[in-house]
Design a protein around this nucleic acid. Sequence first.
DNA 1: TCCATTCGACATGTATACATATGTAGGATT
DNA 2: AATCCTACATATGTATACATGTCGAATGGA
Lengths: 228, 228
Amino acid sequence: MYTYVGFAATDQRKTAPLGHRAAEILLETLESEIVSGALPPGAPLSELALAERFGVSRTPVREALLELERAGLAERGARRAFFVRALGAEELADLFEASGEVESALAALAAHRMTEIERQALIALAEAPAASAADYSDLNRRFHDAIKSGARNATLAQLLGGLDLRTSAWRAANFHEAEERQTTSRAEHLKIATAIAQADAERTRSLMRRHVAQSHSVLAEILARRGR
Amino acid sequence: MYTYVGFAATDQRKTAPLGHRAAEILLETLESEIVSGALPPGAPLSELALAERFGVSRTPVREALLELERAGLAERGARRAFFVRALGAEELADLFEASGEVESALAALAAHRMTEIERQALIALAEAPAASAADYSDLNRRFHDAIKSGARNATLAQLLGGLDLRTSAWRAANFHEAEERQTTSRAEHLKIATAIAQADAERTRSLMRRHVAQSHSVLAEILARRGR
DNA sequence: TCCATTCGACATGTATACATATGTAGGATT
DNA sequence: AATCCTACATATGTATACATGTCGAATGGA
């Protein structure tokens, strides 16, 4: 029998995290499978089936599924069963609109708060040539990450991270950004970087909002074509 | 080897019907205790201790704690143990800044999207007299809810809801809004409602941002005084 | 006295057994 | 033939047993 003695409320031990936990591996694996489209929207995420597939018990599976729900990649359906979250066109629009607002807020803050070195690095990122689609994707990510960290607001950055995770499933599963979009996108990046370099917060905000909206338009059009 | 001896004589298990699940009751109880301050920031949330306290096993406790973490009310510390989340002044500032950005984005959208009836209702809310502090608190909530729903963006509304949950712990635990703040706040509400009624999105955004920042200033000052 | 080592208590991580609810198939009833 | 009822398969909800790691106190030696 357990006899609970308890810790003082001031207990502040800091210890290295335990090794590779099953729940953590599951989470990463499922996340990548959902984002890559291997697990399509609407696919059932049965505790038992996943436990058998990964050779673990249901307990870590439960934890991973709860985390997935938290990330917005899974949702509960009938009988509280988990499914890969399926977004309709409207929810997708909401999601991109939210991303646009949050990221433009971050960009506006970054315009005030970035150091001179960060501003120059951002412009360099915007100007860097992309040899391939993978290159471009990487540059794109680094550009947006630079703005996220330049804003000096962990809470907003975290919000945007969560939203990006939810949109990435659609971005990755449905298309590689078209060549022409890359060109346009690069031009937008450069405008944004310039506005930030000039510490013009409101222009930055407006440019970034339009930039995200453009991404949404392109994706929505592709989805609509596929839907036909 | 594993030897299962059956249930103790005192076994009075009853698997809860959906909707009255142990994990759900735990979540609501803990949430209210944290927000009310009964469980202060930094307090340990031990699985075993909570399981014994509520007379359930660790499994539903785990689920409730994961949900609390999701809501930002708990965090994992040493050895992955859960604690009531403690925010420093900096994180609090981040939080309010994020709230300001998100809510001002919602307000700007509402300025474009609210129906005429909603606009009038909002002005009525802003003008309504508050007989008591509780009244004012209720009016305040309804005012902000009206904007949230008028923006027609569930994703942004959900983000703001999560942020509000995290700040409410501090608001509730630390102070009742001072009389003078009520007066100022009401004036700000009226300005915002007017800007929305005029569909002036940018003015709305700016007013709302300032409004949230004001709330933060007042709270921060009170916290600083207590800290002295 | 002070420090290194050992060991015990207890934390979380995981596996598994049991409880209960629900969808479904198939037969009985009307 | 349509409907209802029941048994069953299987899902999630929960409890408990076991695994492993860490902290802190006790201990023993320099």
